[in-house]
């Protein structure tokens, strides 16, 4: 190894970059989650036309989080963002029971994607602060998550209050470290 390369290796940040994809139906809370991860104000959020991206530092990692709009019209574009993904975070509005079927269908389609095969998936059962929210086991059973062939985890949370978000991200870190 040349001196220059050695120096570069010593100098360069050992920090690893992770590409994380945030997906889910519109109004699931993806942007709120993204802003929460970046410690930004969450009170003026608007529907995402297109996508948002933020870089967040977390326990030695640089997380590049891509938040893609969840509107039906935009979903066909999701697949343009599937390259080199380390983790998929799928966000569900646990209080919107009428759309469980729709969110299940979208999730099933994601699981079929070749480019995402084997990519670990964290499912945030969001909006647990709302009184009519379904709990994690209810959602897990309803969507048949048990049959998923990859590392996965469901985490109840409230992106609004931040409760449960940290626990979910800890799972992400552990999973990536095991890789």
């Amino acid at each position: 190894m040349g001196l220059l390369a050695l120096l570069r290796k010593l100098k360069s940040n050992p920090e690893k970059e992770l590409k994380i994809l945030l997906l889910g139906l519109d109004n699931a809370g993806k942007t709120t989650l993204l802003k929460h991860l970046a410690s930004e104000d969450i009170s003026h959020i608007t529907p995402t036309q297109g996508f948002n991206i933020k870089s967040v530092q977390s326990s030695g990692f640089r997380l590049n989080v891509w938040d893609i709009g969840g509107q039906r019209k935009i979903r066909p574009y999701w697949k343009n963002y599937f390259e080199n993904i380390d983790i998929v975070i799928y966000v569900i509005d646990s209080s919107d029971r009428k759309r469980f079927e729709e969110t299940g269908e979208e999730l099933a389609e994601l699981l079929e994607e070749d480019k995402l095969a084997g990519v670990p998936m964290l499912i945030f059962a969001n909006k647990q602060d709302l009184f009519n929210a379904a709990n994690a086991s209810e959602i897990s059973e309803g969507l048949g998550l048990g049959s998923m062939r990859r590392r996965w985890q469901i985490q109840p949370c409230s992106a609004m209050s931040g409760e449960g978000v940290q626990e979910g991200m800890e799972w992400v870190m552990q999973t990536v470290n095991k890789k």
């Binding site: 139906l25 109004n27 969840g70 509107q71 019209k73």
Partner: peptide
Amino acid sequence: WGDIGFQGDDPRTDFRGMGMLG
């Protein structure tokens, strides 16, 4: 509602942080 550019079946959820101003 999608014809005038709302996201889902009920525009209610699209106003969010902009509330009634939107």
